[in-house]
Nucleic acid binder design. Structure first.
Lengths: 340, 340
DNA sequence: GCGAAGACTGTTATCGCTAACATAAAACGT
DNA sequence: ACGTTTTATGTTAGCGATAACAGTCTTCGC
């Protein structure tokens, strides 16, 4: 039933199935299955014979059949917004690596928009391909709502979402990061610190803004500006800020915006750091080579991703925690900040 | 068999299956299946009844069962090296978008290393979860070999690989891009153009280097330096180059390295573009805000990704092309280059 | 008014695998 | 030596969907 008519055993028309291997090894299909899933339960010589047959036929278990009967797929999903951004991309990468080590595959669903609906849709798309669990990287207010609509039977872990989520979560402590950045500037003798924030309703943006506010307590708090994370928006808002001569220190909510802002200041004739000090956020790999090298807050995305996977793994094996883990960011001082 | 004991119909213990829906709608399972897959073959009123039942039970088809019998999974795989890099990340994103529009899901396998072995392993991992096709983004010499070992029954499309591949491929014409960059510098009156290349054995790096060489024919061709794509390597090699006073123009194989290089030149007291002109490659979103704004070669990763998906789709439906498509890069002139 | 074609819907078999139980063979204690 | 446990393998019965075929009921032409 298995032998190909014309000679070469490697030349089969259809892919080999369990039964074929069993036939060739002279055992039952079940034994082959065991060799693959619980080798210790099969006598070494039998095992060897089966393995040889597997090898010879180039047998590969049928994923669909297996997961139909086991109810597990070995695939997990990641819902993310714009995986082109440094943060999500790095987190995704770390998740993928962690997943691979545990023999999980990662399926991605990026979102066009960040609405409650689109999150639900993203999760849904993944669920239809029966992922075993989902990690949601949507640092937006809408995520909180989006996560509420989820079916309770699907293990979900959130990354960088809000505080009051019903699911396990990992997040960087942006409040602390912002405080560190702002204090650093105050300690350098600046009267106050201006802030260029991320877009409204982004959790990260809000947390950083709050941290900034917190560190500024008791002082004059200038009205914050908001960008859209892009260098370009940093440039535009920078142009505006540079007209205000009282500005001597700016805490910018991410590195690309800081880059744009520094360009605007430079073009306006205000030197960084001599006239104005700037602190960014993220520590993208290029930040050390900006002009001037950027003082910034480093987020450890690798840890973030790994922790997210760990949490998901816990939930998938049943531990019904709604644990929340925090990753501490770190201030990296370079040359874009100086004493007043 | 389906009704929950205590009231709320939404509260079932096990997920509803086809049979449950059929029961509730008073039809056979087959009819339900048809409503879902070929609605026009079912009378409108029956269809409505079935749909209502689907709704009520929150029925979702079982992916594994479906793909077991149809032999298709609706998932495609992307094998890529370091999805944190701008190029791969953008390509991946475009692929994912295109895939979504055609109701495919994307599975990723990032590679630790870029050897022939690791590529084969990556493809294998994906194949085990029975993807319907694979897109390989590995712009490295090893890819060519890695692709040779692949099973012939799996549709594969290559992105940015070498020229002599046996599979359909999409690639940016880096040779042309490099020629444009180099000519631009020559036309500005520079005697010759130096080159900071990417790492050896990267296809893109080689193509760009060849284009640079080609555009320089008839002139003195300075020995190229090589970096590893990182801003840091650009900085290091930039320090070396900046010691050579004869250097007036540099074509750098990507934007981050150009950033590092410009920093090195600035620190060495050589102004860009007054003393030295620099051209980068990629046009990352930040390039317009580098100091000075970087003249660079823009790659359209979105198109690249979309085309790759198209090609894969063609192969999956059977068209056995080994078509090779090319995407043209575009020179974007900014302020890092000036007349000699 | 009646057979044929068409429109719907149902039945059966099967995809490839593994859980659970059944059996056979080997190992063991007394 | 003989029941009992242990170890190794085989058998059976689905998992949840769809393909292919088989009916049933309309509809229609003449």
């Amino acid at each position: 039933m298995t032998t190909s008519p014309g000679g070469e055993p490697a030349e089969r028309t259809k892919a080999a199935v369990l039964e074929d291997v069993a036939g060739l090894a002279g055992v039952s299909a079940m034994t082959v299955s065991r060799v693959l899933n619980a080798p210790e339960k099969v006598r070494p010589e039998t095992r060897a014979r089966v393995l040889a047959a597997v090898q010879e036929l180039g047998y590969r278990p049928n994923f669909a059949a297996r997961s139909l009967v086991t109810g597990r797929s070995g695939v997990l999903g990641v819902v993310s917004f714009d995986t082109t951004l440094y943060g999500p991309a790095s987190t995704l990468y770390a998740i993928e690596r962690a997943a691979r080590e545990h023999d999980y595959l990662v399926n991605i669903a990026s979102l066009e928009a960040m609405t409650r609906r689109s999150i639900a849709e993203g999760v849904d798309r993944l669920r239809q391909q029966s992922v075993d669990g989902v990690i949601v990287i949507v640092p937006h207010e809408s995520a909180a709502d989006g996560l509420r609509d989820l079916p309770p039977d699907l293990p979900v872990v959130d990354v960088g979402g809000g505080e009051r989520l019903s699911v396990p979560a990992v997040a960087v402590d942006h409040h602390a990061g912002a405080v560190r950045a702002t204090r650093h500037l105050l300690e350098l003798g600046h009267e106050t610190v201006h802030h260029l924030s991320g877009p409204a309703n982004w959790i990260d943006a809000n947390n950083r803004m709050q941290g900034w506010r917190h560190a500024l307590r008791g002082r004059e708090i200038p009205p914050p500006l908001a960008g859209d994370w892009s260098a370009n928006s940093g440039y535009e808002q920078g142009k505006r800020l540079s007209r205000d001569p009282s500005v001597t220190a700016v805490f910018v909510a991410n590195d690309p915006m800081a880059l744009g802002l520094m360009r605007a200041f430079r073009e306006a004739g205000r030197r960084v750091p001599e006239d104005v000090s700037v602190v960014g956020y993220d520590d993208v790999p290029e930040a050390a080579h900006f002009w001037p090298p950027l003082t910034t807050v480093r987020q450890n995305f690798a840890t973030l991703g790994r922790q997210a996977f760990q949490l998901l793994l816990n939930r998938m094996v049943g531990h019904d925690t709604s644990e929340r883990r925090t990753v501490e960011p770190e201030l990296v001082v370079r040359e874009s900040t100086s004493r007043r």
